[in-house]
Simulated scan of single mutants.
Amino acid sequence: MVRGFTAARPRGASLVLRYAAFAVFASGVNLLVQVAAMALYQGPYALLLAMAAGTVAGLVPKFLLDKYWIFDDRVPGRARGLRQFILYGLLSVATTLIFWVFEIAFHWLGDGGPLRYLGAALGLGLGYWVKYHLDRRLVFGGR
């Protein structure tokens, strides 16, 4: 981040577009890591391991993008930031369950084929919508 640069909290369509772009980016990271994990390991629990790896890979960049570019949260303090990240991560568990239910359902419907990625994309979209509202109220103080 450039010292002295501020990214004022977006509003309206700008907020929606920015949040959507960040969600697409984090989703892309998630899905790319899943594809890589599935290519590297196809043994027991491969799907669950790939989903977990993708989820973790997308969490950190999404938190930082949301903190600074969606909620314009620039209050200093490592302890505060750590608390926010922990709460952000805990709330991610609930929204990740939405994503996983969709992905597993589509995996099952598609007999293990690529249809699961459509389910993943739908689940991630719904999960991010819920996540924005939770984060706005609980993580970044109603901003």
Results as ranks from 00 to 15, higher is better:
L47K: 07
L49P: 11
F63V: 10
V35F: 12
A53S: 15
L48W: 12
P44G: 13
A57W: 09
K67R: 15
F63G: 09
V60A: 04
Q34D: 02
K67P: 05
L65D: 06
V56I: 15
A53Y: 05
A52H: 07
M38H: 07
L65M: 13
G43W: 04
V60I: 10
L65Y: 14
A50N: 09
A50V: 07
V35M: 00
A57V: 08
A52K: 05
Y41A: 08
T55V: 05
L40I: 03
T55G: 09
G43I: 04
K67C: 06
D66F: 09
Q34E: 03
A52C: 11
Q34T: 12
K67G: 01
T55Q: 03
V35H: 00
M38W: 11
A37H: 11
A39I: 00
F63M: 03
V35P: 00
L48V: 13
A36I: 13
L48P: 02
Q34K: 01
A52D: 07
M38N: 09
A53K: 05
L48S: 12
A39W: 02
Y68E: 13
Y41K: 05
Y41G: 05
F63C: 08
V56K: 07
P44W: 00
Y45W: 15
L47N: 08
M38S: 08
L64T: 13
L49Y: 10
